[in-house]
Design a protein around this nucleic acid. Structure first.
Lengths: 251, 251
DNA sequence: CGGCGTTTTGACAGGCTTCAAGGGCCGTGG
DNA sequence: CCACGGCCCTTGAAGCCTGTCAAAACGCCG
């Protein structure tokens, strides 16, 4: 019930569509050569499938090549909290590689393409490519930052603020990755997903969203999200996510 | 207004009081020798002082040797969210070393002793001691796990559940570190701290705490916290934190 | 056209915040 | 030795915010 992973079409690292992005650093030749060997497979996951699961051990480490996913935790009675969203270039499953067992699950939100790396070769990476090791630390640290911000939202921001904040953050990340056009991004999630991320009920999420739409700062029809007035949205969110640089600095 | 850092009494790494703890792995001789050189100072911070600050860049990386601290973020209008607590053996300031600027602040909750490591030598660590590099990744990943769990609390747990959960988690961590006696730990924070961690108002925190005390599962007088019925507390929390192993596995 | 998942809306109850004020403890200073 | 001030803990009351329940409208696909 987990995988559904067909392995069709394979993307060689030299032609990785992500590397040219300005928000990612460039590899040296030897790094590229190593990563190419490190990547042992490419997985295609259907939307709606959880490919990593709570209380399970994982032998692999993944990187999102195409599509959206989200990390989440479930309580026994069915309550769900979405921790954050994973977009192309994000790493998932590091925790399973580092700890005994996964403490959360990860589900594909759209058809998803993953690069697969074996846990077993991680030591080789750490010992031979300290710069790549540092990249992993950097990725983990940046993800923690996002979660910190999310935690502030759930703890201290009002429903309207936190909704604006999350939408703005997702929009910004999607734009950095060149998903969508100017002012417009395809958001693949439902209001239920949003509610589970925001820690609110579906009904209240819907009503909050309506208030937000009433400001004309954004629109969200079908699955297309559009920002009309970024400054206004940032004002409601109480903080603009824009300023943050995300390129990894030199160690 | 920041530091107040006197440098009295210095703890050589060979005599580090933390290393013998069963929840920490042992160093090899060469690792120990490197860490000893890596540690360039020891800082003593007064309770109530924020020694790392939001929007600031840090040249140092710290490890808590003695005392309690907490990571937090402030919003412009003064709302505060405590992200998590740092206890002995925890690392703080990695983010400032890895990213451009700190996105959060860290404040001493008690008189605090920190080991100081220079950001500048981090590359040396990564290139010469991959196992230590992996330790850093591991620490970052474990901290993320704690925050994930906290996020679930704020998003999906009731006031009573989340209060029980946080207290149980802090109690468990403190016990692992051999702070306090059987059943008893000295908690150095006020109800206001607890409220800011739980994302609730002070008044409601107080009333929730009262309900929790009424169950007789715990008591908390003065600054002394005591667990009388761990199973009952875990039941209210909805999840027992106990099972989780925290020793770093082999890479 | 019918069915199902998603979005919307309204009504109501209860949880949580805010405002306000009193009490306890402790260190300082008269 | 006692009075005072500051910090923290408690408690009550009022009202908003948010969750729950219920039902209808919408849109997409077979």
């Amino acid at each position: 019930m987990v995988g559904s992973g067909r392995t069709n079409g394979y993307t060689p690292c030299e032609q990785c569509p992500l590397r040219p992005l300005p928000c990612l650093r460039e590899f040296t030749a030897s790094e590229l050569e190593f990563v190419k060997r490190f990547k042992i497979d490419e997985l295609h996951i259907d939307a709606g499938v959880s490919f990593l699961r709570q209380d399970t051990r994982s032998d692999h480490l993944y990187t999102v090549l195409r599509g959206w996913a989200f990390r989440y935790k479930m309580l026994d009675d069915g309550r769900r909290q979405i921790l954050n969203f994973a977009l192309p270039s994000d790493m998932v499953g590091l925790q399973g590689t580092v700890m005994e067992e996964m403490e959360h699950s990860v589900e594909a939100l759209t058809p998803l393409t993953l690069c697969v790396f074996p846990r077993a070769k991680l030591y080789e990476l750490y010992s031979q490519f300290p710069t790549l090791a540092f990249d992993i630390t950097w990725l983990a640290s940046r993800e923690e930052q996002l979660i910190d911000e999310h935690l502030v939202s759930l703890g201290r921001r009002t429903a309207l603020e936190r909704t604006a904040f999350l939408l703005l953050a997702l929009y910004t990340r999607a734009q950095e990755l060149k998903l969508g056009n100017e002012g417009t991004v395809q958001f693949p999630f439902t209001q239920q997903h949003l509610a589970d991320a925001l820690g609110m009920s579906l009904v209240h999420t819907n009503k909050t969203l309506k208030r937000l739409l009433a400001t004309k700062a954004i629109s969200w029809k079908g699955r297309v999200f559009e920002v009309h007035d970024r400054a206004a949205l940032a004002l409601i969110a109480g903080d603009d996510v824009q300023r943050k640089k995300t390129q990894r600095p030199f160690i």
